[in-house]
């Protein structure tokens, strides 16, 4: 059967939509290699000088350190809390489950600005100043729903038989969790942690409310630099961010594929 011509238009439109999504990002990467003094067209030649400038810019190095530390701590805390909650949601039935489920995703139902204001005002009232711990608490609370959703989706596919077998052979619940459950759900845990890290690393809305004066994360640093004008340095910083936030998850995905393929092969082999 011949495809209707309408489909040709849909194909062309889809190509346009993808170009719309990616062309501007591509231009950021392209311009970061521009030799020109100004962060703009025309391209006058290929140069790595803007990356060199980044590496010697103390403010940017500090912003990277802050973002990395914040992202890693957020990922650890949010994933730990989120995995425990997801286990409860997927493995148990209990009264009030629907309400709990809504509560767990409540932080993304509340607009981030409102969440930012609420947390800031409340913690100031409790005499917690704008500080790194405040930033960390903020990032944990709004990454938590994403971790819960991702981990829950993966947990549904993990069978319970192995845990029951371990328990019936005399393992304690704690032993079972660390020896059986955790290794089985590791891909879900890693996916959740990666997600939390990326969201935290990218966040600007809440961060601008919570950050103490003088402390910048990479996004707030870019934001502050944009106040002047767009420079090749911003494009270079953008390129580094893209490589980190796109490259790391892709790498993680590839590694996870490898690991689960190998585990699958082992599990499939006769004992």
């Amino acid at each position: 059967m011949r495809k209707p011509t309408g489909f040709t238009w849909i194909t062309l439109w889809t190509i346009f939509v993808y170009l719309f999504m990616f062309l501007p990002i591509g231009v950021v990467v392209l311009l970061s290699f521009n030799a020109s003094q100004f962060g703009s067209f025309p391209m006058t030649g290929f140069s790595l000088q803007w990356f060199g400038e980044l590496a010697t810019n103390d403010a940017i190095i500090r912003a990277f350190q802050t973002s990395a530390l914040l992202g890693i701590l957020t990922a650890i805390i949010s994933t730990t809390i989120g995995v425990l909650a997801s286990l409860a949601m997927v493995r148990y039935d209990f009264p009030g489950k629907t309400t709990i489920s809504t509560l767990l995703i409540a932080p993304i139902l509340v607009p981030e600005v409102v969440l930012a204001v609420a947390l800031l005002l409340f913690l100031q009232l409790m005499n917690v100043p704008k500080s790194f711990p405040l930033l960390l608490m903020g990032h944990v609370i709004f990454t938590l729903p994403f971790v819960v959703l991702v981990v829950q989706a993966r947990l549904i596919g993990v069978r319970r038989d192995y845990e029951e077998a371990a328990m019936s052979l005399g393992a304690s619940p704690i032993q079972t969790f660390f020896r059986v459950t955790l290794p089985l759900i590791m891909p879900a845990v890693m996916a959740g942690a990666l997600f939390a890290f990326t969201i935290s690393f990218d966040d600007i809305t809440g961060t601008l409310f919570w950050k103490p004066g003088g402390v910048e994360t990479v996004p707030t640093q870019i934001f502050a630099m944009l106040r002047n004008s767009i420079s090749p340095e911003i494009n270079a910083l953008g390129t580094v961010m893209i490589v980190l936030t796109v490259g790391l998850p892709l790498l993680g995905l590839a590694v996870m594929r490898q690991v689960s393929a190998r585990q699958g092969a082992q599990a499939g082999a006769p004992a």
Binding site: T80, G82, A85, A88, Y92, F94, L104, P107, L119, L144
Partner: peptide, 27 residues
């Protein structure tokens, strides 16, 4: 068995309560 889910949920619910619900009341 009945207590287990609540133990697992307690850190997440504490976080949502202390960092979102109570602050919203204060707002």
């Amino acid at each position: 068995e009945r207590r287990a889910p609540w133990i697992l949920l307690s850190p997440a619910l504490t976080a949502v309560g202390l960092l979102l619900l109570v602050p919203l009341v204060f707002v």
